[in-house]
């Protein structure tokens, strides 16, 4: 553990209201939900680069730890719902198979028992496993502050590498998934890691087609942010063949060489995943 904890402060609000009031004071507070990212930075001695004051949201679980379907048929995932909460929830298993799959391949069970989907989104890693699935399901985020709230599209949340539209005084309170629209066999999720468990993705993809002209394709680990390849979606919806779709996709993704893989590999695998996806779900 390479951090001198005495240099850092941590607030432990007991309610949502208290948490948002603390955030309204203008101090930069780094939220800790499940802790599975923050604690890694702490171990590595990188906390200093992130912030000096932290805010543990754990005691907000009574208000924010839930997974439920609302009266309009939307799935609501509270900000403190863990991967385990999500993957084992009956409504999720029934209606959002890619979410189950993506939560199940995130970290290991111990991580799934602590980590939260909202935390994963806020952290903004382009390798996040659940984010492409959430994007394909047209997820929205409810962002709250002490005086109000707003709702943004997940696909418009990220503005750059680990940058997003969340303001200092805001927290993500919930993830909202509209009523399921894709048939189970028209959904395709694929995580590419170097081993079968506990791998950070080298490419991650979620895609779906509702057969009525709505195609969704979202990619992780091939750009600074998780993104929907909207041009490729449109082309595929208009009946583009695999080669043409691939030509368009190459204008949307920008993979790089890093410690886990190469640009070349990521491109080749993206091309093959695209072809596989089109072969399996394209009509």
């Amino acid at each position: 553990m390479r951090t001198n904890l005495a240099d850092y402060e941590c607030l432990t609000p007991g309610s949502v209201r208290e948490a948002l009031e603390q955030r309204a004071t203008g101090r930069k507070l780094i939220p800790i939900a499940g802790g599975t990212d923050v604690m890694v930075w702490m171990n590595d001695g990188h906390l200093g680069k992130v912030g000096k004051v932290y805010q543990s949201l754990h005691a907000l679980a009574g208000e924010w730890r839930y997974v439920k379907t609302d009266t309009e048929g939307n799935l609501r995932i509270g900000a403190l719902a863990t991967y385990s909460d999500v993957r084992h929830h009956e409504d999720v298993k029934k209606n959002y198979p890619m979410l189950v799959h993506s939560a199940q391949v995130t970290g290991a069970i111990q991580i799934q028992n602590r980590g939260t989907l909202a935390g994963n989104i806020a952290n903004g890693s382009p390798a996040a496993d659940t984010v492409p699935a959430l994007m394909v399901y047209d997820a929205k985020l409810r962002l709250v502050n002490a005086s109000g709230e707003r709702v943004v599209e997940l696909s418009e949340f990220f503005t750059g590498y680990r940058a997003n539209v969340l303001k200092e005084e805001e927290l993500i309170s919930e993830i909202i998934l509209p009523k399921p629209r894709f048939a189970a066999d028209q959904q395709y999720y694929r995580k590419v890691g170097t081993r079968e468990a506990q791998a950070i993705s080298k490419v991650v993809f979620a895609g779906a087609n509702d057969g009525k002209g709505n195609v969704r394709m979202a990619w992780g680990s091939v750009a600074p942010i998780t993104l929907r390849s909207k041009k490729t979606e449109d082309a595929v919806a208009a009946g583009a063949a695999a080669d043409d779709a691939w030509a368009i996709l190459q204008t949307e993704i920008t993979p790089i060489d890093d410690i886990r893989s190469t640009r070349d590999y990521r491109l080749k695998v993206s091309q093959r995943i695209l072809a596989d996806f089109l072969g399996k779900v394209h009509q």
């Binding site: 941590c10 432990t12 800790i32 499940g34 802790g35 599975t36 923050v38 604690m39 890694v40 171990n43 543990s56 754990h58 111990q110 991580i111 028992n113 602590r114």
Partner: peptide
Amino acid sequence: VMSCMVPVCQ
């Protein structure tokens, strides 16, 4: 859970 990932306040 992995106890290296849990801040004790939680």
